[in-house]
Amino acid sequence: MTRGRKRKFSPEIPGHIDQGALPKGIYWGNGRWYWLEPHPEGGGSTKRTIAGKSARLSDLHAFAEEQASADAAGTLSYLTKQFKHSSEYKELSPRTQQSYDWLAEQACAYVLKDGRTLGQQQVAHLSTPAVQRIVETIAMGRPATGRLPALPATPSKANRILQYLGRLFAWGMRIGACRTNPARGVRKVRERGAHNMPEHDAFEAVLRFARERATRQAHSAGSCSPYLPAVMVLAYNVRLRGIEIDTLTDANITKQGIYSNRRKGSLDNITTWTPELRQAIRSLQAYRADRLAAHGRPTPLRPEDRFLLCSESGTPLTKSALDSAWQRLIAMAIREQVISEKQRFALHGLKHRGITDSEDPADGGHATEAMRRRYNHRVPIVKPPKKR
């Protein structure tokens, strides 16, 4: 591993780390290890948290080696970063850009059988059958085996990644970065109709559990992310998807209630205030203020720049971080027998629950009757036929 210039000794760096052997591009600050990613077109770099204070020097070197491999020209990771700085990407709406960034991250993080990630794979070595196998594995899920991590069954995510890869490779062909489009001809998977909606008792049990665990010191045994109770309240009451919660800002807070920011063609509406909703918003704003102050970050002036969900370092929370925090909470709730494995539910299932419990299924913002029926799981009560 190539090292940078000799660094000055820092007393803040954990004592078990040999500072003279740190790999290039990795730095310590605010109790975390960071990776500096250079901008492909110059003009600075971006900072990304990669590990906590317990990380070993070997862990840092392994990450740096992996990153160097993933950034090699011709890899999928390299292509996604080039696409992000293209005129085609910059013409997309901010919401689409954010969605593509998340899909690129998920696709590049997929672990192949040899232990490498898909992001490290040379695009020229990808084929239509290989992409088909990846899509089907993401859709059907897989158990943890050896070096392969477990994957939940997510057919909708599989199809979205396929759609993104198809556009990415098509762009790559137009600029000469790809000879073929290995996503062309790949069959979409059938998205299961299961809604994974929680029963009321499971929902309430996990919400109580999250509220108690959110009060524990961060990173202590049994703790959960402080924002998760508010996320559950918003997902249910405002009937939002995870990405819609993740992108809420102070601009969505009105006198009447919470103005939604729905995706996929759904119609925005305002959910009127309840004491529970007000408490959820106050808790998110208080946590944000605390984190900004703790890290010396200024509060953005414009309401649309003040995201309600933030990370421990005060930066806007990524969708992948929200998904990871949710999965940890549900796994812990099952492990501690708050709910059973059969009662497991998805964050998106809370939107199903909220629409089902609403007086009018149209409150979920769906523009078509077909989608309203998909989310409304109430069993109709009908009268028996009259005898003739």
Rank of each mutant, 00 (worst) to 15 (best):
A214C: 13
R211V: 00
L228N: 03
L240Q: 12
L165C: 05
A144Q: 15
R241K: 02
L151C: 10
S127I: 06
E212Q: 15
L118C: 11
L118S: 03
T137D: 15
R239P: 02
D114E: 06
E136M: 07
R213H: 10
A124V: 14
T180Q: 04
S225K: 06
T145R: 13
T180K: 09
V231S: 05
P129C: 09
M173G: 03
G119C: 13
P143D: 13
R184D: 04
Q132C: 03
V233I: 15
Y164L: 08
K188M: 15
Q122E: 06
G166H: 04
L151M: 14
R190V: 15
A183E: 02
V238K: 04
N159P: 05
L234N: 01
D114H: 07
I161P: 00
N237W: 00
Y164T: 11
R190T: 14
K188G: 12
R241Q: 07
T154C: 08
R116A: 08
I243S: 14
I134P: 00
Y236N: 13
E199C: 04
L207M: 05
V131M: 08
L165I: 06
L162K: 10
Q132R: 08
V238T: 06
N181I: 09
A170F: 03
E191D: 11
P155T: 12
I253V: 12
E199M: 10
A218N: 00
P149H: 11
T137I: 05
S223R: 08
A153N: 06
N237E: 13
P143L: 04
Y236A: 08
I253P: 08
P129G: 14
K157Y: 07
T137Q: 13
D201T: 14
E191Y: 04
